[in-house]
Design a protein around this nucleic acid. Structure first.
Length: 798
RNA sequence: GGGCCUAUAGUCUAGUGGCAAAACGACUCGUUUACACCGAGUAGUCGGCAGUUCGAUUCUGCCUAGGCCCACCA
């Protein structure tokens, strides 16, 4: 526990900046330089440009637009890398459409600008604040997007949208108008979730739990001169009490039903009502109903047609005397004092209880009555679940989270927010006719505050809507927005969307909803859900101070190492951040570089042709490679990039470097007859390995491709080359035996503390001699045997 | 209270109805015509209890612990 608290993000970042390992400057592959060069190459040659005209199936990606926040978070790096593994794999098979966008139209952006510019939007005019937001976005967005390019996310950045740009606003407003015309949208005055800090309505999905200390007080109401005891945590709502519930089965209070009780301090009467929802076990068994303590109160007041007493204003102050003007918290303390003075508290104890707070600011949420816009969805729950089921979720269990959320929905989708910055709701209201007027399609995007509208019926000047949309109302149509950017050449369902599991209930749910409402289709065929990054098992968050800055990781280890790390977690699994994983990634990069250098050192006289006859050992090695290609292809197709990566990594390191290279070294040096066979095998297998790794480590593989392979290959980039075909897979029995014997020789040399170069006399059984007939020369080379004799198996040192 | 996920070596992760695996760390060696960001080798592990089975780390149930989501929160 204490340990965890000591780890601050700063310490971690410092450690990364000044690694203790003595990094020698000898490195020949300069990560930072090579990655910069490669990025430039991709950019200049538009490698990831979507080419409509290209033939073949289109693989379309509904890239999540990150919320503009200054800089990329390590969680972003993790998740977008995972998306990119899949995207790059498919780009080597199909025509990839992968646009990029940023989400910057909503409350988070507004709050960011308030923070950066030290202003309060409510103190400014709407147009002033919107202008400031747009200007600020212009300043900070380019370097924000650069972070995505830096980790190698292979989007076509020219197909770009921001959720506040004209086209997005237009499409978002059009969506609203269509749904309005369909009768799906309604406006209603209703007690809704309200944040008194941000001063806006919020959605169910924006709630977060928080444990707060509280006082549980038993108060004395009075009834016919006797005390009626009611326990509450919210005494400040006494003035909003509109009724008292007791359970109809509760004998203690049976005689009270139908009578009126006197509210302490406020001294007015409220009816006592029998209602089964009152729990006899809780508190005193008597429950006060207030307008509005929670959503239970909302329901109870409606059910009994009680008249609400609204005592809290939108900014969270009381509007009832004598507490008028006081903040809720202050009023609570003051009322308790006053109750105490008047001897109206029987009992009081401290407790901790869980309250709903706004996820953006942590303020306790209130239920306040305001007029808000909703999209009717509660009648569609079943349908939306079955739509969600049509999507293939990776991993599969993520669908259950979606289903769980939809089943638990209790409110329609609240889409309006009382903020300055956002996509305007394109509506006006004629007060005389009580009629809502929506914009026509031709005038979109529109800001109703800037356009005068007259009622078509009575010609009276209509009142413009001041509210804006919640950000999800717009981001829920990202597939349609990106489609519109290319003339609708790609349409839903897209191939895939990727996001972390925290926004299944918002972004994914709302997108499925909108695609259903507009097109009766699912938005994508596949949904890949990423996990979170943790540090020492804890979720990273700014408030805990345990965040890792990806920019520092990039400086020290490079994007390939970062991606290498991100690929080590299976899709959907959380991953602990560990610096040693980056070290491993960096080492792998170096190894790739060194192995490549070595291979090409020996390919100077390679003629590029496949020899008529391949050595048996080479042939069987290539069978093993084919097996790897098969495993990786299937893994990538199933979104299991982690398996593809680890299989390739192991093959490259163990099979290719430690075994195959060691085995054929001498054959190649000494210009023996098998040289051409080895050269062909080296070239082919290294190239295949590069392709298999290209989706995971795009920089080093591209760099190597450009430097070594390009002269013999036609593709401009390795990322536009074809994914390796799965060749024939046949028995590798002899090679396996060969490797087994090699291991035993190495073991023996280690046991005897001999050098691997020490000479031996190798004795093999007749059976093995025959089996390895075609590989004896290689065996001799790699074990440094001066002779191989036919006898019982043994290893003699010379 | 409901749902979901996870539990494997000192650490972090693979994996399987039939010898349990990689990386890092530890230990013992070796090495210079790719690589010390190296090579070879050694030691060390399936949360607990039942059940199904010839056989369970793997399947089932329960328990324990951790995480996430939802509900409750007079």
């Amino acid at each position: 526990m204490d340990d965890k608290k000591n780890i601050s993000g700063n310490d971690v970042n410092k450690k990364i900046l000044n690694p203790q390992s003595n990094d020698k400057v000898k490195a020949k592959y300069n990560i930072v330089e090579a990655e910069a060069q490669t990025k430039k190459f991709w950019d200049e040659n538009k490698i990831f440009k979507f080419d409509k005209k290209r033939k073949g199936k289109i693989f379309s990606v509904d890239t999540p637009p990150p919320t503009v926040s200054g800089k990329m978070h390590i969680g972003h790096a993790f998740q977008y890398s995972q998306q990119d593994f899949i995207t790059r794999f498919w780009r080597m098979k199909e025509n990839v459409f992968c646009p990029f966008g940023t989400d910057d139209n909503g409350l988070p952006t507004g709050l960011l600008v308030e923070r950066l510019k030290q202003v309060r939007s409510k103190d400014m005019s709407r147009s002033e604040f919107v202008k400031l937001c747009l200007e600020t976005l212009k300043e900070i967005t380019p370097s924000f997007i650069q972070d995505w390019k830096n980790i190698g996310v292979s989007c076509d950045y020219d197909i770009y949208y921001s959720t506040i740009d004209d086209n997005s606003r237009k499409m978002s407003q059009k969506s609203f108008i269509d749904l309005f015309n369909d009768g799906r949208v309604y406006k209603k005055e209703f007690p809704t979730l309200w944040c008194t800090q941000c001063q806006t309505a919020i959605a169910q999905a924006e709630l977060e739990d928080k444990d707060l200390p509280s006082k549980f007080s038993t108060l004395k109401f009075s009834l016919e001169g006797k005390d009626l005891l009611i326990a509450t945590t919210r005494p400040e709502l006494l003035g909003a009490c509109v009724g008292i519930f007791v359970n109809p089965k509760d004998k203690r209070y049976a005689g009270y039903v139908g009578k009126n009780a006197l509210v302490p301090l406020f001294n007015y009467e409220v009816p006592i009502i029998a209602d089964a929802s009152a729990d006899m076990e809780k508190g005193t068994g008597v429950l006060m109903v207030c307008s509005y303590g929670d959503k239970y109160d909302v329901e109870a007041i409606n059910r009994h047609k009680l008249v609400p007493r609204l005592i809290i204003s939108l900014d969270g102050t009381l509007i009832v005397d004598p507490y008028r003007g006081m903040k809720i918290r202050d009023a609570r303390a003051r009322i308790l004092e006053d109750l105490e003075k008047n001897n109206l508290i029987l009992d009081q104890k401290d407790m901790e209880h869980t309250v709903n707070v706004h996820d953006k600011c942590g303020t306790e949420v209130e239920f306040l009555t305001t007029e808000q816009w909703f999209i009717r969805i509660l009648d569609l729950k079943k349908k939306l679940i079955s739509q969600g089921k049509k999507v293939k979720w990776h991993p599969e269990f993520m669908f259950k989270r979606y289903k769980n959320w939809v089943e638990g929905l209790e409110w329609d989708w609240s889409i309006s927010r009382d903020r300055h910055f956002g996509v305007s709701i394109p509506a006006w209201f004629c007060e005389r006719c009580s009629k809502t007027i929506v914009a026509s399609e031709e005038e979109l995007p529109v800001d109703p505050l800037q356009v005068e509208k007259r009622c078509p019926k009575c010609s009276e000047l209509a009142v413009p809507e001041e509210k804006v949309f919640d950000t999800w109302a717009t981001s829920s149509i990202t597939p349609q927005i990106t489609s519109s950017l290319i003339g609708n050449d790609v349409t839903i369902p897209y191939s895939v969307r990727n996001n972390a599991h925290d926004i299944i209930r918002t972004w994914d749910f709302y997108t499925i909803t909108k695609s259903y409402l507009h097109e009766k289709k699912i938005p994508w065929d596949n949904m890949m859900v990423s996990g979170f990054v943790t540090l020492k098992g804890e979720k990273m968050s700014k408030s805990k101070g345990n965040v890792i800055d990806p920019r520092i990781v990039l400086e020290q280890y490079g994007a390939d190492a970062l991606r290498f790390w991100a690929s080590s977690a299976k899709l959907g699994e959380d991953l602990n951040f560990q610096e040693k994983d980056l070290v491993t990634g960096k080492k792998t990069i170096t190894k790739l570089w060194n192995a490549t250098k070595f291979v090409f050192m020996n390919l100077e006289d390679y003629d590029g042709k496949k020899p008529r006859k391949l050595e048996m050992l080479d042939k069987q090695f290539l069978y093993k490679l084919n097996e790897l290609v098969s495993v990786c292809t299937e893994a990538f197709e199933n979104y299991d990039y982690a398996k593809a990566k680890s299989s390739t990594e192991t093959f490259f390191w163990k099979m290719f470097c430690d075994n195959y290279l060691e085995i054929v070294k001498r054959r190649v040096y000494n210009n023996e007859p098998g040289k051409k066979s080895a050269q062909y095998t080296l070239y082919t297998s290294l190239f295949t390995l590069m392709k298999l790794l290209a989706p995971i480590m795009p920089f080093i593989t591209e760099y190597i491709y450009q430097k070594y392979f390009k002269m013999r290959e036609k593709d401009v980039s390795i990322h536009l080359s074809r994914w390796p075909k799965i060749g024939s897979i046949e028995s590798t029995q002899e090679l396996d035996l060969f490797l087994d014997i090699l291991t035993r020789v190495r073991q023996e040399k280690s046991n005897k503390k001999k050098s691997m170069k020490s000479e031996v006399k190798l004795k093999l059984s007749k059976e093995n001699m025959e089996k390895l007939d075609t590989m004896l020369e290689d065996l001799k080379n790699v074990t440094n045997a001066i002779a191989i004799l036919e006898e019982d198996f043994d290893i003699d040192f010379v």
